[in-house]
């Protein structure tokens, strides 16, 4: 028997970390009626979003995984929303780039930091009562304070390690072989809340998780331990700048109830809820920055 025949058929590798990419437009709106159309492009380290705002109101967005090239990621993100809406790039009056790859958005008129954009986006999504924002991004984490208009008053960012970031959760999803969207709900399916694993380093957390599995922990208990570690990590960041009422979470992790509920428990406050996808906050803020700039230009004549 040849070696080739002896080998079992290769199984298709499942990507448990792969989160849902999506495109949405407001069906009740017609962009052709808008006087000012602005676009925000957020090229993050893990995901890229394009958001279209018509006269200061969210019209649509496209959220997808960032590729290995920032200009292409920005172009692809925009193409998704343009294709769905029938819009062309020429129809957009102003484009603002933000995120890790903001300076590499080829068609952007201006680049604004993701800190300012997330504050502005959270202000739109959660209303003027939002004062403290936690952005749990793909490879960094930010704690932001803002005023009633969404202007940043205090911020800090931790981009030195992946603990407390979306990438850390992707690593655990792959390790557990459980789709990333199921991690949060499964983390509550435990009889007793386990101790948190390492909250300092994803690599250590991964090896600790493996050790727990070998020690007889169920997968759900390990997930619960990781969600708790993540919550403790970001809460320690938040405590440095303080947490005020009007707490809002942006970024992909905001969709994981296992982390969100544990953060709320540690802080003793409820996060402001929104129906808008938390992952688009940065791009939405960028589009709104563009709208404000257009208004200022119009006022100047």
């Amino acid at each position: 028997m040849s070696a080739e025949l002896a080998m079992p058929a290769a199984e298709e590798k499942k990507e448990f970390w792969r989160w849902q990419e999506n495109t949405w437009i407001e069906e009740g709106m017609d962009w052709r009626d808008a006087k000012v159309i602005t676009c925000g492009i957020d090229v993050g380290s893990v995901s890229s979003q394009a958001v279209i705002v018509c006269d200061g109101v969210l019209y649509g967005y496209n959220s997808m995984r960032t590729g290995n090239n920032s200009p292409d990621s920005a172009t692809n993100a925009l193409k998704g929303i343009l294709d769905k809406s029938g819009m062309k790039l020429e129809d957009i009056h102003y484009v603002v780039g933000t995120g890790y790859g903001r300076v590499n958005v080829p068609f952007a008129h201006k680049a604004v930091t993701e800190i300012a954009c997330h504050a502005r986006g959270a202000n739109y999504m959660g209303g003027s009562k939002v004062r403290t924002i936690l952005d749990m991004g793909g490879q960094d984490c930010k704690a932001i304070h803002c005023d009633e208009r969404g202007k940043v008053t205090n911020f800090l960012m931790n981009d030195k390690c992946a603990a407390g970031t979306g990438r850390g959760m992707e690593v655990i999803a792959d390790l557990m072989q459980i789709p990333i969207a199921n991690l949060g709900p499964r983390s509550f399916d435990v009889e007793t809340e386990p101790e948190a694993v390492s909250s300092i380093c994803v690599v250590f957390a991964k090896s600790e998780a493996l050790g727990l599995l070998k020690a007889g922990y169920t997968k759900n208990m390990v997930i619960a331990a990781y969600c708790q570690a993540m919550a403790e990590r970001v809460v320690s960041l938040l405590e440095r700048i303080g947490v005020e009422e009007g707490f809002f979470i942006t970024g992909g992790i905001a969709k994981n109830p296992g982390v969100v509920k544990r953060i709320e428990r540690l802080l003793g406050i409820q996060a402001v809820e929104t129906k808008i996808d938390s992952q688009i906050a940065g791009a939405l803020g960028a589009a709104l920055f563009g709208y404000t700039l257009m208004q200022k230009q119009a006022a100047k004549g």
Binding site: K151, N154, F155, I200, C201, R240, I241
Partner: peptide, 16 residues
């Protein structure tokens, strides 16, 4: 605005 530059790691918090 208070801008905090730095990080927190296993050895402590280092922000300017």
């Amino acid at each position: 605005m208070i801008a905090n530059y730095g990080y927190k790691d296993g050895s402590g918090e280092y922000y300017i």
